[in-house]
Simulated scan of single mutants.
Amino acid sequence: MPSSRVRLPVSFYARPALTVARELLGTHLVLEGEAGRRVGRIVETEAYVGAHDLACHASKGRTARTEVLFGPPGRAYVYLIYGMYHCFNVVTDVEGVASAVLVRAVEPVEGLPPALRTDGPGRLCRAMGLTLGHNRWDLQCAPLYLEEGSTVEEARVARGPRIGVDYAGEWAREPYRLWVRGSQHVSRPPARRGLESA
């Protein structure tokens, strides 16, 4: 069944990664295919703000893998970690600035069993059916896209350090991970008191 919600425009993505990471909370990630329509409400994101961000893949330079990060905005960046888990990102900011937002968790909305685990980027991609085959897809015209969802009030937004980027030194401590407080689908609670802020 076609959705009455509006697909997010290029202008939504053509902003700094931290802004997009915040605004993605509450929106819907959609994949339409032979298996039907799968929809998840985004409840957790991580911002990677450019080549100067040592946690960002682009920090090691412009390569065949990272080329998509340099724009244009509104493209999918999907990569494989540990040889088995896919991670889905959206490319942000203006063309030439290598930044993106990792979608870490969604709440099942349509086509996904309510009890299905969608916490963490690997589980999310497995549940949605996202693979390397979706890398570089234009979210404006592909059957993979993001659409308007429900607004998340600022009081319900938590922030803390990103996960799994200890190699990035001081950049690992930046509060660039955002999530919806109280969601049972968030991948990991704060490691200790004091890391969560409004």
Rank of each mutant, 00 (worst) to 15 (best):
E110C: 10
P113G: 15
L102M: 13
R136T: 15
E110R: 05
G149Q: 08
Y145E: 00
S99I: 12
T118D: 04
V97G: 04
P114L: 06
A100S: 13
G74T: 03
G129P: 08
P114N: 13
L116E: 14
G149R: 01
Q140G: 07
Q140W: 03
G122Q: 00
A142V: 09
P121I: 11
A142T: 04
V157A: 15
S99T: 10
C141H: 15
D119Y: 05
V106A: 03
Q140D: 05
V103S: 02
L116W: 11
V91Y: 02
C141F: 07
S150D: 15
L139I: 08
A158E: 05
G129C: 07
T92C: 11
D138G: 00
L139S: 00
L139Q: 09
V91N: 01
R156F: 11
R75W: 02
G96V: 10
D138F: 09
C125S: 12
V94D: 05
G120D: 07
A105Y: 01
T151F: 13
R136Q: 12
F88L: 11
E95V: 06
T151Y: 11
G83Y: 08
V109E: 06
C125R: 09
V101N: 02
L102S: 03
D119I: 00
T118A: 03
A127G: 15
I81D: 12
T131N: 13
S99F: 09
W137A: 01
P73F: 07
E107Q: 07
S99L: 08
C87R: 10
T92M: 09
G129M: 09
M84F: 05
C87K: 07
